[in-house]
Design a protein around this nucleic acid. Structure first.
Length: 923
RNA sequence: GCGCGCUUAGCUCAGUGGAAGAGCACUUCCUUCACACGGAAGGGGUCGCAGGUUCAAGUCCUGCAGCGCGCACCA
């Protein structure tokens, strides 16, 4: 690292090493490797998407896992790709084409032309998010990038459709579905968001008809509705058969206002007599329950709201072509005029909204394709019995609950962009319209029928999730039994958000069992893999929110652009800051300050290495146990502790804990204490001197300790901070002695640090007493610095401390204390007799005085000692209370008892010293 | 209605039955030869409320309250 800049400059460094990794093929996964496999498939982002903070969190975690696995000696496959996001992409392209004036509606272009435009759009924009992931440092095997509309992948989707169709799991049916009038397509139940809304409950009067079909003078049934516009399609009024108020009405007819149509009063158990008036208007074509009732009572269906959300001709002249919300107003107005609106109540209820278009869902009767979920039982048990582990585990409850109440999945979408349903209908002889749908007239196969001119393909495409549920194996070459599948399936970890637990996670597990699992009895093995499940662990990230706790969204404009953050702070900073504030299982309140913290941390790491470089000399490999200082031993112990904590945190997917440990170890322990203390030895000349023949070799030994710590620290940091660690790994020369494939070429493959074992501890004298000694030494320093503060002595003023040791204190340790106190001198005087009121602090090592010759601030000193005294007394009281409890001594473990007794003694000693000091001040 | 979270320093949050923690913000001091993207010393908490278990509870149990999120066909 020649001419090291004072501050870390990430931009050039990041680009350089990413190119290096790509050129060296560091990310490519080799199925022929003998190393154990580790694999992740990326949750495919939308092909037209842009990187947002959610991606940053999600993909940083995956990259951390992948990089850690490489350092653990695994053969790693992180398989990237994108999905085609049917509705979203089609909507974006349609909007753009309209804006350009290319079309008004896609029908203007026709299916083929329109799809050409979408593909062109995909070619232009589809790579953006992939490039952005690279900026973040993601170590995906890019050669294996997949897209859900790739020809091979599309064939997987079709094959799966055909298989399930032939097994009877997929069927076509006319059903009431969730219709998105903006996107003009059916949606699955999961794509409907129930939102609480303040609405109104309108009470409508329907005049009853007498025997002659004439409205009675004053006879009405009153129905309540939240959607008055649907009354135009009413076909009955229903009451509960056991409701005494209305039994006499059943069988009579009433007049549907506005339409002037007689409709029957029917009896149905569905009606809850206790709700509202106990009379329900029945709109068969626009409400799922009403539809069921209509089927039971053989009522006709009148469609008054069309697929575009506008009223149809059947709604009557006055309402035809009105938007459904305008129609609502118009209907209410008209009914009011006719005196048929009894009352309007405020009413809070839940309204289904399209998760895609954010418009209210319209229940809509249409012909759709449905899937009876396959392998549900196996998929449910896999999670319940722990073969797939959720992190945090609580999501498994959500999963199980969902698996219990499954309804058939509506998989067809009325779009053009997507996998077209592989079903053809035989054209009738007379026209090109599909003939009756009997078996011989339907062709369902991956390939079109040979006489395709006699057939018409189903116009619908499949739900995007119907393709992405195959992602873990369809990306690896299924249905061929590829080497990749053999090596890397099942995958190890999946990282995703809990919001797609139903959409994706559950369905992937089902698909795993259905298509990768054991064959049904009697059939030859279809796939020779031992395990069907698609992954073993699922890590659920939190949702990234802004610092006010709001979800990030384009419309709020509260979503920072990660690329701007990378440009400003560096990718490592963004990764570290995000991970540090993202606890397992909780939402993340993102604040740019977090990224700033990440940048500051990188700068600290940079400068710590720079400090080492300034000490000169080659990388020091060997540490001589004979020459270790107490500080050297202390930092080795702290490193050991950090390695253990971080390794455990990784095993439990507690990444924020790992980053916090790293932060604490490196900043608070290594930089704040060890580096400062090491300056005592580093100040010596690197050349042997006559005065102190050992100082040069002690100095070299300290440099060796620094190299040991830094080379370990860089490896511990690598999964979080890939760029700066690679830069420093090479810059510091730590790669030089490593085997080529274990850190010699890249820190990516350096071995993950192991905890320092017992032999190491014994060999280097890493003992509890060293730990206690150095802790006490540093405590003495903190107290000594406090003396200076309390006495209002500026840091710039050189002062002399006097130390009265309780035992032995080596010259080195005394020098460290002097240095850390920023003292001109530290006089060791075992028999020191302080003058009256000399400020002093105590530690296990002895008493430290700050003699100030006539400059003692008696008031300040008294205040300080009084505070000490009070603190000691309250702490004593706490411990005494416990110890005085007879049950305590009997039941508590001996070590805890001993610890409490020791604690009491310590506080007593402190109290006594504070008392004495106060008396001395007054005396 | 059912389920799941959350409630700890001014803010954002860690905390795994045995002395209340971090970052930011705040106060004071320091441009000392790694770093002002820095250093030092401080101030600041009846751990949402009420019970219970325990020698010992921020931590375990039971209620309650507030906030958030799922799921649920009641017009």
């Amino acid at each position: 690292m020649p001419d090291i800049p004072k501050a870390y400059e990430p931009q050039s460094v990041e680009e350089k090493w990413y190119d290096f990794w790509l050129k060296q093929n560091c990310f490519s996964a080799n199925p022929a490797s003998t190393k154990p496999a580790y694999s992740i498939v990326i949750p495919p982002p939308n092909v037209t998407g842009m990187l947002h903070m959610g991606h940053v969190l999600n993909n940083t975690i995956q990259d951390i896992l992948a990089r850690k696995a490489r350092m653990d000696g695994k053969e790693v496959l992180w398989l990237p790709g994108t999905d085609h996001a049917g509705i979203a992409t089609q909507a974006v392209v349609e909007k753009s084409l309209r804006k350009q004036g290319v079309m008004k509606h896609r029908d203007d272009l026709g299916r083929e032309k329109f799809l050409e435009h979408v593909w062109a759009w995909k070619e232009k924009h589809g790579g953006i998010i992939i490039q952005q992931l690279k900026r973040l440092g993601c170590s995906c095997d890019w050669a294996r990038e997949r897209f859900t509309m790739d020809p091979a992948y599309s064939r997987c989707v079709q094959k799966v459709f055909v298989e399930l169709y032939r097994k009877g799991q997929i069927y076509r049916g006319k059903r009431m579905v969730n219709w998105d009038p903006a996107a003009r397509t059916a949606l699955s139940d999961e794509e409907v968001e129930m939102l609480e809304e303040k609405g109104q409950l309108w009470h409508l009067k329907y005049p009853l008809l007498d025997d002659k079909g004439q409205p009675g003078a004053d006879e009405f049934v009153v129905v309540a509705t939240t959607r008055p516009e649907t009354m135009l399609g009413d076909e009955a009024v229903a009451v509960n058969p056991n409701d005494p108020r209305y039994t006499r009405l059943v069988g009579r007819r009433c007049l549907l206002p506005l339409q002037n149509k007689p409709i029957p009063v029917i009896a149905d158990d569905f009606v809850d007599p206790k709700f509202g008036t106990g009379c329900v208007k029945v709109t068969p074509a626009h409400d799922p329950n009403d539809y069921e009732m209509a089927v039971r009572h053989k009522l006709p269906l009148t469609v008054v709201i069309g697929p575009d959300g506008r009223m149809t001709e059947a709604a009557g002249e006055d309402f035809d072509d009105l938007d459904r919300m305008e129609a609502r107003k118009a209907v209410v107005e008209e009914l009011t005029e006719q005196g048929l609106l009894l009352k309007t109540e405020d009413y809070v209820h839940n309204v289904g909204y399209s998760q895609r278009s954010h418009v209210p869902i319209e229940p809509y009767l249409s012909e759709q394709w449905f899937l009876k979920y396959p392998s549900v039982e196996k998929a449910a048990r896999a999670v319940e019995e722990g073969r797939i582990a959720f992190h945090p585990d609580r999501w498994s409850k959500t999963y199980s609950h969902w698996m219990l109440g499954l309804r058939d999945w509506c998989i067809s979408r009325q779009l053009w962009w997507g996998h077209r349903v592989p079903v053809w209908y035989r054209k009738s002889a007379q026209s090109s319209a599909p003939a009756t749908t009997s078996a011989s007239n339907i062709w369902c196969d991956v390939d079109a029928p040979p006489d395709s001119e006699n057939w018409t393909q189903d116009p619908d495409v499949l739900d995007t999730w119907f393709s992405s549920w195959l992602w873990p194996f369809a990306t690896m070459g299924w249905p061929e039994q590829t080497e990749t599948l053999k090596k890397f399936y099942p995958t190890t970890d999946l990282v995703t958000g809990p919001d797609i637990i139903f959409f994706w996670v559950a369905r992937m597990i089902m698909a795993g069992y259905e298509f990768m699992g054991e064959p049904e009895s009697g059939l030859p093995p279809r796939f020779g893999l031992p395990d069907a499940l698609p992954f073993r662990n699922v890590y659920f990230t939190g949702i990234i929110r802004d610092k006010l706790g709001r979800k990030m969204s384009k419309s709020l404009g509260n979503s920072p652009d990660p690329l701007e953050l990378i440009a400003k702070y560096g990718a490592d900073a963004l990764r570290f800051g995000t991970m540090r504030s993202a606890p397992l299982g909780q939402d993340v309140l993102f604040d740019e300050k977090d990224v700033e913290l990440g940048r500051n941390f990188c700068n600290k790491l940079w400068n710590a290495c720079r400090f080492r470089q300034m000490q000169g000399g080659e990388v020091q490999g060997e540490i001589n146990p004979q020459l270790l200082t107490s500080d050297d031993r202390w930092i080795l112990l702290k490193l050991d502790q950090a390695i253990r904590e971080i390794t455990t945190a990784f095993a439990e997917y507690r990444f924020n804990e790992a980053t916090q440990t790293l932060y604490r170890f490196f900043w608070s322990e290594y930089c704040d204490w060890y580096v400062e203390a090491s300056k005592a030895t580093l100040a010596a000349s690197p050349q042997p001197s006559a005065v102190n023949p050992q100082s040069a070799s002690v100095r070299a030994n300290t440099v060796a300790v620094i190299d040991f710590i830094l080379s370990h620290t860089l490896r511990l940091f690598h999964p979080f901070l890939p760029f700066i660690t690679e830069e420093l790994w090479h810059g510091m020369g730590y790669h030089e002695d490593m085997p080529e494939n274990q850190g010699g070429s890249s820190i990516m493959f350096a071995r993950w640090p192991k905890p320092l074992d017992k032999n190491f501890h014994d060999h280097y004298g890493l003992t509890d007493s060293v730990l206690a000694f150095v802790t006490a030494k540093f405590d003495l320093v903190t107290q000594g610095r406090n003396l200076r503060r309390e006495g209002n002595i500026p840091a710039s003023r050189k002062v002399k401390y006097v130390f009265k040791p309780a035992g032995e204190l080596s010259a080195h340790d005394a020098d460290v204390v002097r240095l850390l106190l920023n003292a001109e001198a530290l006089e060791i005087q075992p028999g020191y007799q302080p003058g009256k009121g000399t400020p002093a602090v105590h530690s296990e090592l002895g008493t430290l005085y700050l003699p100030l010759e006539g400059l003692i601030d008696v008031t300040a000193e008294r205040a300080r000692q009084t505070k000490e005294l009070e603190k000691a007394e309250t702490e004593m009281a706490k411990v005494e209370q416990k110890l005085n409890n007879p049950a305590f001594a009997q039941k508590v473990p001996p070590n805890v008892l001993a610890e409490h007794q020791k604690r009491l003694a310590e506080w007593q000693a402190k109290r006594d010293r504070a008392k004495a000091a106060l008396e001395a001040l007054d005396g």
